[in-house]
């Protein structure tokens, strides 16, 4: 802050001495006001990212402090958005830090009326078992016209188009190896 902070404790005195008689600015500043700093300059690190909403691909800077996201704003260097964001892009911090976000596995048993909790590894084991079973139960070595197809009609998938390319690649690779072919994506909807 260019102006040095006056030592006089009582703003009224500062009004008399600092040329701010009407108490409009320099004389009435509190200590906190003098020491204010934006979160963007006190962050530990900045991750360079891309907005998850539409396909324009606006560059984003994510500011992190004490392992928490404290600000997400446009990346001025990006030739795509030149630092600008739309309302959804600007709400990215609200998205990733929302209190409504699920952080534990929820499980609904057949005929159940309420959610139950599951821990991560148990849930993964249960899903793996079901994948193996459903794959085998609906396996088709030959289709109804006796053509060799080596596939399972038991497993289907519908992905959103916010999946990364790397994720899409592993998903398609795994399902294809499993013989699951009813693999679809929002790109067609």
């Amino acid at each position: 802050m260019a102006e040095s902070r006056s030592l006089l404790p009582w703003p009224v005195l500062r009004q008399l001495t600092s040329g701010d008689l009407l108490g409009r600015g320099k004389a009435v500043r509190s200590r906190r006001t003098d020491e204010v700093e934006p979160r963007t300059s006190t962050a530990d690190r900045v991750a360079r990212s891309v907005c998850p909403y539409c396909a324009v691909g606006c560059g984003q800077k994510i500011f992190v402090k004490d392992e928490k996201i404290v600000q997400i704003e446009g990346d001025p260097d990006s030739p795509v958005n030149r630092g600008r964001l739309c309302p959804k892009g600007s709400a990215s911090k609200n998205l990733v830090t929302s209190s409504l976000r699920e952080t534990t596995i929820k499980y609904r048993r057949p005929h159940g009326t309420e959610w139950e909790d599951l821990d991560l590894t148990t849930a993964m084991e249960m899903v793996a078992d079901r994948v193996v079973k459903s794959r085998r139960d609906a396996w088709q070595e030959l289709d109804e016209k006796d053509r060799r197809v080596r596939r399972t009609m038991g497993i289907a998938s519908l992905g959103g188009a916010t999946l990364d390319n790397e994720e899409n690649y592993l998903i398609k690779k795994l399902f294809t190896a499993m013989g699951a072919i009813q693999i679809e994506n929002q790109a067609r909807i």
Binding site: W10, V12, Q15, L22, G23, A27, V28
Partner: peptide
Amino acid sequence: KPSRFLNMLRVVKLT
């Protein structure tokens, strides 16, 4: 913020 009533005496604002 009633707790900050005394802030009224922080300054003399002729305006």
